[in-house]
């Protein structure tokens, strides 16, 4: 069907080729520019040098990727649980939506640059402030996705269930929750990318380890090559989480790939 990638793995590989080419072209242009201009690697290191730094510092980078991944996943898990619990409350008590949403919207207007140091000040250098900051960034999009998803339920399906004698809870479980799944996964794919950025920023402000700390230290010791090496790792981490979300969606929403009428 039109709204999901289809065809054999080989066909999909061909679809992905233009993207691969444009990335390679950009890296090649960057490499050539650094070579030709003779610019100092302290200002702009070549991609080859960044790659070399990843290999040389692989132990350091790995040791600092683990805490970032941990902060991202626990923060996101916390955010998801709270978003789901609140979405349930709002779905069953619609008045709560009007009471709570303004507060959540305001929470999304707070600049992370100002909030992060405060949260670190209050909760220290441990995991807690990272969880809170990741949750602050990802919670609202997930809540909106779920609540809007419930609202997208076909009223005919709700009426039908009601005529069958289904309770409000049964209608939620059999109709509203499944209806929200496409929205949920759209929100998940977006939020998971914010989550990594938020975790790294939280580390940058105050932590003992993590990619944010690697970036901070590399900056302070004028090592843009190592900085970019950490950036490459964090991008790879984000892409991996994005891919995992897409895979999960593929598994859960299998019905959307079923063909159309013969």
């Amino acid at each position: 069907m039109a709204h999901s990638p289809s065809g054999s793995p080989a066909a999909r590989l061909v679809q992905g080729l233009p993207a691969v080419f444009s990335v390679i072209a950009a890296l090649a242009a960057w490499e050539v520019y650094v070579l030709v201009s003779g610019i100092s690697p302290l200002v702009l290191p070549a991609p080859s040098r960044v790659a070399e730094q990843i290999v040389v510092n692989r132990d350091l980078l790995w040791a600092n990727t683990v805490p970032t991944l941990q902060a991202t996943l626990s923060g996101f898990a916390f955010s998801l649980s709270v978003a789901f619990a609140l979405s349930l409350l709002i779905d069953f008590i619609p008045k709560l939506r009007r009471a709570l949403f303004p507060v959540f919207v305001i929470s999304q207007t707070l600049p992370l640059v100002a909030i992060a140091p405060l949260v670190v000040l209050w909760f220290g250098f441990g995991l807690t402030p990272k969880i809170l900051l990741v949750a602050l960034v990802t919670f609202f999009p997930m809540l909106v996705a779920l609540v809007d998803g419930y609202e997208s339920t076909d009223p005919d399906i709700s009426a039908l269930l009601k005529s069958m004698g289904a309770s409000r809870a049964a209608i939620f479980r059999r109709a509203r929750l499944p209806s929200a799944m496409p929205y949920f996964f759209a929100g998940l794919r977006i939020s998971i990318t914010y989550a990594v950025v938020a975790a790294i920023f939280a580390e940058y402000v105050g932590a003992r380890a993590g990619l944010g700390i690697v970036i901070l230290n590399a900056k302070n010791s004028f090592r843009p090559d190592l900085m970019l090496a950490a950036v490459v790792i964090s991008s790879a981490l984000t892409l991996a989480l994005f891919g995992a979300s897409a895979l999960l969606q593929h598994l859960v929403l299998g019905w959307r790939r079923a063909g159309v009428a013969p």
């Binding site: 076909d154 399906i157 009426a159 039908l160 069958m164 004698g165 799944m181 929403l253 019905w255 959307r256």
Partner: peptide, 15 residues
């Protein structure tokens, strides 16, 4: 529960 109801559009759950 005396009635079984068939709505105008089929209201089949796509999932």
């Amino acid at each position: 529960r005396a009635f079984a109801f068939m709505p105008q559009r089929d209201a089949l759950m796509p999932w």
